[in-house]
């Protein structure tokens, strides 16, 4: 029984390591400036917990075989070792807390700093099961919106056109274009329930909470088309709340924006 259990634990451990190390399925290539730092921290963490995982399971399996009931005699009456306990408590505390501190670096850069000046502002307003995207237009200012004016057919964010700043605002549905290599400042809102803006290659996830305007910023460094998924349960077709993030070169982005500007 001891051998069998040790063998099973060994096979499970090996299988797990192969599945993680083989990367048969893995995260998509990072396209944001901060993405590779998150990936590095993830790999560092995975390596450390991987070693801890292998050591713990191997020790368990080894003890199971080594100290299975056999022959005569008794177990040892050894049940305390303050020095040993102090040692492993210190080691885990140092390792875990170092990881926690290291893990704050990207976070601090993303969330403790204001969006850099000159960042392109984009407002994302989530609703069941659509992403509404708004650009401030040539004046660089978002116009006034009013809830009463919201109309899913032609005014999804409720632009108040009596405000001059609102007249050049550009609104798209499920299509979010951004220029590559430029800081983007996204203002996240929601019209109804909580949603979450999740673009895996961007390594960016942030809840959109009704009643709040949440500011995030990032910079995409690779062009292409990527999917925006909702990561917070928002109702019936949560699993189909799909938008597209188009990372374009600066001229392409300008052209894209102009095509969508109101005549």
């Amino acid at each position: 029984m001891g051998f069998a259990l040790a063998l099973v634990i060994g096979v499970i451990t090996l299988g797990t390591v192969v599945l993680f190390a083989g990367r048969f399925w893995w995260f998509p290539e990072a396209i944001s400036e901060h993405g590779p730092s998150i990936d590095r921290q993830f790999m560092l963490t995975l390596t450390i917990i991987g070693i801890a995982f292998i050591l713990a399971q191997a020790t368990l399996a080894f003890f199971i075989v080594r100290y299975r009931r056999q022959g005569e005699g008794r177990a040892s009456y050894w049940h305390d070792s303050p020095r040993l306990e102090a040692l492993w408590t210190t080691i885990t505390a140092v390792v875990f807390l170092s990881l926690a501190v290291l893990g704050q670096r990207v976070w601090a850069k993303l969330h403790l700093n204001a969006p850099p000046p000159g960042a392109l502002q984009v407002e994302v307003t989530a609703q069941q099961f659509v992403w509404n995207i708004r650009y401030p237009g040539p004046d660089g200012k978002f116009g006034r919106t009013r809830t009463e004016l919201i109309n899913d057919v032609d005014n999804p964010v409720g632009l108040d056109f009596t405000d001059p700043a609102a007249q050049d605002d550009i609104v798209t549905v499920n299509q979010m274009a951004i220029p590559v290599n430029r800081d983007i400042h996204v203002i996240l809102r929601s019209k109804d329930v909580i949603h979450s803006f999740w673009v895996p290659p961007l390594r960016m996830k942030q809840d959109a909470v009704p009643g709040l305007a949440i500011n995030i910023h990032f910079k995409a460094v690779k062009t292409g088309q990527f999917e925006i998924a909702c990561a917070e349960l928002c109702g019936l077709t949560h699993h189909r709340m799909r938008g597209f993030l188009l990372v374009l070169s600066e001229p392409e982005f300008e052209r894209w924006l102009q095509q969508r500007a109101s005549p």
Partner: peptide
């Protein structure tokens, strides 16, 4: 919250170590 969360790994690790240490030089009945 993050720092406090990883701190909880310490008592959890103590428990794991002590379970393993309980098996050391044991006479395990399966």
């Amino acid at each position: 919250f993050s720092l406090l969360t990883l701190s909880i790994g310490v008592p959890s690790a103590i428990k794991t170590f002590n379970w393993l240490a309980t098996l050391y030089k044991a006479r395990i009945h399966f």
